[in-house]
Amino acid sequence: MNRRDFLKVAGSGALIATTSGAAEARGNLPVPDNAVGMLYDSTLCIGCRACVYKCKEVNDMPNVVRDGEVQWDQAEELSGDTLNIIKAYKQGTGETKNSAVDGFAFIKRNCMHCVDAGCVSVCPVSAMQKDPETGIVSHNPDACIGCRYCVAACPYNVPKYEYDEAFGQIQKCQLCNQKGVERINKGLNPGCVEVCPTGANIFGTREELLQEAKRRLALKPGEDYTYPLERVGSTYGHVKAAPDYTQHIFGEHEGGGTQVMVIAGMEHTKLGLPDLPERSYASVSETVQHTIYGGMLAPAGLLAGLLYFARRSCKETDKEGEDEV
């Protein structure tokens, strides 16, 4: 085989790769028909952490205790024992709520239930699943091999592996709909929503939550608004003067959109939410992968060429070998 032949093989492989790929390129996944999620309004949150407590109760998780003796939950970050946490932004004197300067604000962190979830895309054994109906991202530990690619590929660092256990597993918020809990299927709200006293965290379809978020952003600061508790249109609600909302619904477009969305009185980056492009990383990754391996055409073509040349060189070697002998 001369160099020209070699280049031909390489070229044909590349050609097949690029031609087969064009058809496979994919954009962001569509929003599931009955996508459900949550809307977290940072301006309403009072930091009571009832949601954190309830989450632990529903998911049967222990308190995180630091430095020994303390008896209450001291979780500082999401972890294998904490699927939901309230964190606080604080700047300067930290006196004014929702103010980026000399103010404070709360943020609830949990799984965002991405529309085009990175963890689902990268899991080699389909242990991460997105429900085609509700869009809830669930995890199946019986399939999981613990490679933790989902952890690395989650823009929000949500899936957590239990490093301190010999037989640890990945833990993440499954919107209280995992096997044995199934609150959504039973018509209940997720635990964190049920206990939220101010309606800072409400449950609903992504569509109605988006509309609610847009209604709120359209309010003039100081205007009275009836904030519902638990669900949009709930009979429980409370009247409160609207804050000065930052005109951005985090999760409407971020990384292909999320089903858990956030509105706040300051930029999302201040609250630790990342800047993400509209195109999901998963869609880029899958496009690359399917461009190369779409229908396994390129590898098959390449293998055919490789077989041909390998056979030829082996034969030549044999012959020469025999000649020598």
């Binding site: 899991c123 080699p124 242990a127 999981c144 933790r148 640890g168 899958e286």
Partner: peptide, 19 residues
């Protein structure tokens, strides 16, 4: 992390070809 499930990589029912 869950090495005992390693075989699932070869289980066609679980394989995710997007990965």
């Amino acid at each position: 992390g869950r090495y005992w499930n390693f075989y699932q990589m070869f289980n066609p029912a679980q394989q995710n070809f997007n990965s």
